Simulated assay, not measured.
Amino acid sequence: MLSRWLTEPVPRARVAAFRTLVYLFVAADLVVFTPWVRDKASVSGELYQPLFVGRLLPLPTPTPLLVTILFWALLALALAAATGRAPRVLGWTVFLLYFEWMIVAMSYGKVDHDRFAFLVALAVLPTAGRARHADRDRTEAGGWALRVTQIAVVCTYFLAAWAKLRFGGLDWMTGSVLARAIIRRGTELADVIAQVPYLLIAAQIGIVAFELLSPLVFAVPPRWRQAVVAFFYSFHLVTVATITISFAPHLVAMTSFLSLERVRPLWRLRRLLHRPGGADRPPEEPDAPEVAAPQDAPPVQPSATVP
């Protein structure tokens, strides 16, 4: 029963769409979300305090040459992997390089937990095998990759609540956590919300309750699951709008719950460009050659009728 749930078949097109999205985000992450990692190359090696895995392997101390090679190699290979070619070779390579990129990023005093599910997605995608965007056949290997990513998404929420209660106790829910966050990086909307008595306390209680109950997304009927996932996204939308924390890689990993094969952006783009009357409408087929009209034939005499 458990193995059947873990390997529930999904359309290969869904795996292909999820894979393209994940690898494109790797490229975007390098140049938009975490370009500051390249600055670590100029920091003294004495400030490098590697994470446990960095000490266990061990991984080298970042240098300008190492970080530069890592950046350009990862950028090129991620874009190549997004095409779906050589899914295993390129997939494993991108995972290892991005894993090292995250070790460099998180070994200077701050660790972001929004990367966990995304790293799991990178680790399991190479096992899904080949998949094309137009392929409607179902695959158990692809279903397993998406299911494991979904479990990692839920674990991010549940373990975050566990950490809050473990280190902050019940006082976390009645303290000034959100108030401090608003003071540091709050928006105008957050300033308005903060003026409502006890609303921040209620929000903190709601956050812990939401995170503890997040595993129920697997228990609700499939027709309601999309609504639950939409609530997950709305939670992060409010987070961005109030304290400007995006959780972008986590949001990408959470698309593993969605029917991405229905989006078909390339097909929609072609349809938009080829609409009748559009500037880029496809050339019309040449008109059929005109056939010369036959010359007038002599009138046919009516046949005699039989009396």
Rank of each mutant, 00 (worst) to 15 (best):
L2H: 02
S3T: 14
R4L: 09
R4M: 11
T7R: 06
P9K: 02
P11L: 01
R19W: 00
T20K: 08
V22M: 04
Y23W: 14
Y23I: 12
V26A: 00
L30N: 01
F33T: 12
L47S: 15
L59M: 15
P60D: 05
V67G: 05
T68H: 15
F71P: 06
A76H: 05
G84W: 10
P87G: 01
W92D: 04
F95E: 13
E100Q: 12
E100I: 09
H113Y: 14
D114Y: 04
D114A: 05
H133G: 08
A134K: 06
A134F: 07
R136D: 08
R138Y: 07
A141L: 12
T149R: 03
I151G: 03
V154Q: 04
K164Q: 02
L165A: 01
G168N: 02
L170S: 06
D171M: 04
S176V: 04
I182K: 11
G186M: 02
G186W: 07
A190I: 02
V192C: 07
I193A: 14
I193W: 06
F210T: 14
L213V: 07
L216N: 06
V220E: 09
R223K: 08
Q226N: 03
Q226T: 15
A227R: 13
V228G: 03
V228Q: 03
A230T: 05
H236L: 00
H236T: 01
T239F: 05
A241T: 12
S246G: 06
V252W: 07
A253H: 10
F257C: 00
F257G: 00
R262N: 04
V263E: 07
L266A: 14
L272Q: 09
L273V: 01
R275N: 07
A279N: 13
R281G: 12
R281H: 11
E285I: 08
V291R: 10
Q301W: 12
V306F: 13
